[in-house]
Nucleic acid binder design. Structure first.
Lengths: 373, 373
DNA sequence: TTGAAAGCGGTACCAA
DNA sequence: TTGGTACCGCTTTCAA
């Protein structure tokens, strides 16, 4: 870990990497100028732009009209300084290979926008200087921090970075649960997959994980293994892809398929599963799901492609975002707010990768959308 | 368009959507306090944190050490106010269904970080209030704006939003070219695809576009059509998917395939192409590339999946980012900077979707990676 | 309701 | 090299 005992080494603030050159630009009109031009006080201008302040509707209208005329907009920086609120949420993201996350982040930032928070992105990647990013997070005085599955951050650095501000971890937890987190209920999901495998008569099952030490992976893996045991099924493999990638899934599937004693595989996410699917089908010539059933997790767009029609556990993206934003707002308004863990229910989507042919009708389930065309 | 004549309607700044509640938090230590504690001047503290200022190494060290001790970090907001530089780049993004963009944006924001610019995201979508976002862009005083293929913005609003600041349009241009843009050379790419189709003996070709009125789409379409004519090939279809999606590609391919007079199709991006590929193969039972060759554009990860092995024109992502960042820096430092258009060379990647079986060897090309395993 | 003035936490110029 | 001080542009008392 880079952040030690809540402090940071001395030299670190120096390398500010100023993006060069001469300072400002042609300056826009200020509230004072506008006020002078209109013969009112600068405070009046400020009030005109602040809902709920005591100013006569007439004056406010005059001012707003003049402002529009002169293209005046209150300088957000200046008001940040005096209000000590930035109206900015820092979004800490790491690896985004999984298409699930770009989607989530886009929606999240849109929702945050809706409640008046702009999103400042902090990319935390193996490559980048992590501590520098955390320091930046604090210097920019963000009101809130949303950490989206940043596996590379320790609990200690997370606490330091989020200290004194609203914070939510999405799809990630820290062991001591001192930070509030919102996530898909991984245990529910993994159990549902195990139950489904059992229901369709599979008994020799395998698990393929992604990044081994992430809470997401561990929760899914443990819940799956436990449920598999409860149901009396045999766990033939517990593999780790090492990353959440197509290639990792492909490789793991080759290993499992060649051993020929597995009839259902739960991949920790959809990308792994799709890689596995292709490996089984094209690489090994197996039939999916007849020879081997494949299930993923997340429900990314690709799972609905006819080619795959992948059974998966849908993460409740909208609910996750909604809860995240409301928890942020709550923390922003409540002095005393205690951290909570918020596992949110997802949904098992049964498709052709586990129930082939007309099997879906047989068990009375609706056809996946692409079959209804 | 929402922004009219560079102005904005009066009421608009009011709905600031303040994310609620009591203002501040427990305040961190300030430079003045630190200075007082150390018995030095507040200016000294400022200097200690500003590279290239005249301060003795000893004093600087003392101050930095003390700062680390007390967990002092300069308040970025305050310095923004006095320097009139935010060290923030606004990234304007719109629809991100195309996996090409999340990747690009992640890399871009990382590069911007490297030169000291944090990325503030502005989601511009049909759903969101576009003008509000542009106003926010100005209020936050971002130093630079990078517009990533925001198709929904008119040239006028773009100029208004970027006025007086460094700006680069990525993969997008505006007709009058008053804004500098960096993009993949679409003309080169489309011609390369046409040439390739011709080289592999195809003569009945089709084009499937995405969002019809985007500069990207138009450039690719026109260049392709022109080249096809030059080569004496027949253009059997010019379709517009209406959007860059798998489904759109799928639908377009069904139409083309059923007409049975096309032997090669250029899809305006990879996602369309992959949808088309599946439609040809699974939907219509055609052989790709024997019956019909398929080419895309972008080179997203999925094109390399063995299942698809899609011939595509690779966008020079790294070069695009590098150029974008350097143009930003240039604009930041140069008073007089004139807008330029920067089409960057990409690369045709020939894979199995146009040259099947051992065809790649026959024409002396390297095998795609997945074949080398 | 309105105006005057004191911050908010830095930067930068000036004099010492 | 240092310290003193006038801003940066807005918010927020406090009086009027």
């Amino acid at each position: 870990m880079v952040v030690t005992s809540g402090h940071t080494v001395a030299g670190d603030d120096m390398d500010d990497a100023n993006p060069v050159g001469p300072p400002p630009k042609r300056k826009p009109i200020t509230a004072r100028e506008l006020a002078r031009l209109m013969g009112v006080s600068q405070s009046a201008v400020s009030r005109a732009f602040t809902p709920g302040t005591s100013i006569s509707p007439q004056l406010r209208q005059r001012i707003l009209r003049a402002a529009a005329e002169l293209d005046y907009h209150p300088n957000a920086i200046a008001s940040m300084l005096s209000t000590r609120r930035s109206n900015i949420a820092g979004i800490v993201v790491s690896e985004m290979q999984n298409p699930f996350y770009p989607t989530l982040i886009e929606k999240l930032s849109r929702e945050l926008q809706r409640v008046g928070l702009q999103s400042l992105m902090f990319n935390i990647t193996r490559g980048s200087n992590i501590e520098e990013q955390l320091v930046a997070l604090r210097k920019y005085n963000v009101d809130a921090v949303v950490v989206v599955s940043a596996t590379v951050l320790s609990g200690a650095s997370l606490r330091w970075a989020t200290e004194g501000r609203a914070a939510v971890l999405v799809n990630r937890t820290i062991p001591d649960q001192t930070l509030t987190s919102v996530s898909c209920d991984n245990v529910e999901g993994a159990r549902a997959i195990a139950d489904h495998f059992h229901a369709i008569g599979r008994r020799q099952v395998a698990y393929v994980g992604g990044l081994p030490h992430t809470s997401t992976n561990l929760e899914r893996q443990n819940a799956f293994i436990t449920r598999v045991a409860e149901l009396g099924m045999t766990l033939t493999h517990t593999l780790s892809g090492g990353e959440y990638s197509y290639e990792a899934g492909y490789r793991a599937a080759l290993e499992i398929g060649q051993a020929k004693r597995t009839d259902a595989v739960f991949f920790a996410n959809d990308i792994l599963a799709i890689g596995g699917f292709d490996a089984f089908k094209d690489g090994l010539g197996l039939l999916v799901p007849e020879d081997i059933a494949v299930a993923g997790f997340d429900d990314v767009d690709m799972t609905r492609w006819p080619r795959y029609s992948l059974t998966t556990f849908r993460q409740p993206v909208d609910a996750i975002i909604e809860r995240t934003v409301s928890l942020i707002i709550e923390q922003l308004s409540n002095e005393d707010f205690s951290p909570s863990q918020n596992p949110l229910s997802g949904e098992l989507l049964i498709r052709h990768s586990t129930v082939g042919g007309r099997g879906l009708e047989k068990i009375g389930l609706p056809l996946p959308p692409q079959e209804q065309r």
